[in-house]
């Protein structure tokens, strides 16, 4: 399996995402923001960072990059896409996911090891978790406060599209403790915490982050056996 990791100017966790892909047993393919060619990858990770400096709204410029134009089309066709942190922000700006990520309520950048509860295992990126599984992965952001209008939030809840919630403390004030959501089809997931930083015992608080990457490989393997996304 080949999983693309996009590098925008200002991407920071692209190397970490590529490492996580490798540790999960797949080939990491580095994609460049200015190149519309996705090089035939089976899935895409939009990594954390400050794309284009994020001096405008986070992700607002990255959304218009050549690579994103291709990714938006492919995602609509079912390509699994995981947006982590800045990647989540980009997915919201691209309207592949509803809502927005705003300044943390306490106005500080915050980096801590965060417990999450997995609430949906029917996405392309969470299939190997169990429903309600509690996982520990680092969160680090300044604009990670998830907001949406009440109707959207209610819809997300009703359709089982809240993928993970913060537990034992909400690090940024996100509405309804939302840490990760998915689109209707379940192939696009945005997550604020950083699963790519929880893939090695030596450097992370747990190995829980590997589950997302293992999940997409299982999903792709299943799909190649002709299961629709």
């Amino acid at each position: 399996m080949r999983i693309g990791v996009v590098t925008f100017p200002g991407s920071l966790d692209d190397g970490d995402a590529a490492r996580a892909v490798r540790l999960a047993g797949a080939e990491a393919v580095r994609l460049w923001h200015a190149d519309p060619d996705l090089h035939g990858v089976d899935a895409v990770v939009l990594p954390g960072g400050f794309s284009y400096g994020d001096y405008l709204r986070c992700g607002a410029i990255a959304r218009f990059s050549a690579a994103m134009e291709s990714i938006i089309d492919a995602a609509k066709g079912g390509l699994p896409v995981l947006g982590i942190c800045n990647g989540f922000q980009i997915l919201c700006e691209a309207h592949l996911l509803p809502g927005a990520l705003t300044r943390n309520q306490h106005l500080h950048f915050r980096n801590r090891d965060q417990w999450l509860k997995v609430e949906s295992t029917s996405t392309a990126w969470t299939g190997t978790f169990t429903d309600g599984q509690e996982i520990l992965i680092p969160v680090k952001n300044g604009e990670g406060c998830y907001v949406a209008d009440q109707r959207t939030l209610d819809e997300l809840e009703a359709e089982g599209r809240v993928v993970a919630r913060y537990i034992r403390g909400n690090p940024n004030g996100s509405q309804r403790d939302i840490a990760a959501i998915t689109n209707e089809r379940g192939n696009v997931v945005g997550i604020m915490p950083h699963p790519e930083h929880a893939v090695e015992a030596l450097t992370g608080p747990s190995l829980d982050g590997l589950g997302l990457f293992a999940s997409v490989l299982a999903h792709l393997a299943g799909k190649s056996a002709a299961v629709p996304a």
């Binding site: 300044r103 004030g173 996100s174 509405q175």
Partner: peptide, 17 residues
């Protein structure tokens, strides 16, 4: 969480400030 959510809806969504 409900209290947080209520507060959040009134908080300025100051992304990019």
């Amino acid at each position: 969480a409900a209290a947080v959510a209520a507060g959040a809806s009134e908080a300025p969504a100051a992304s990019g400030d």
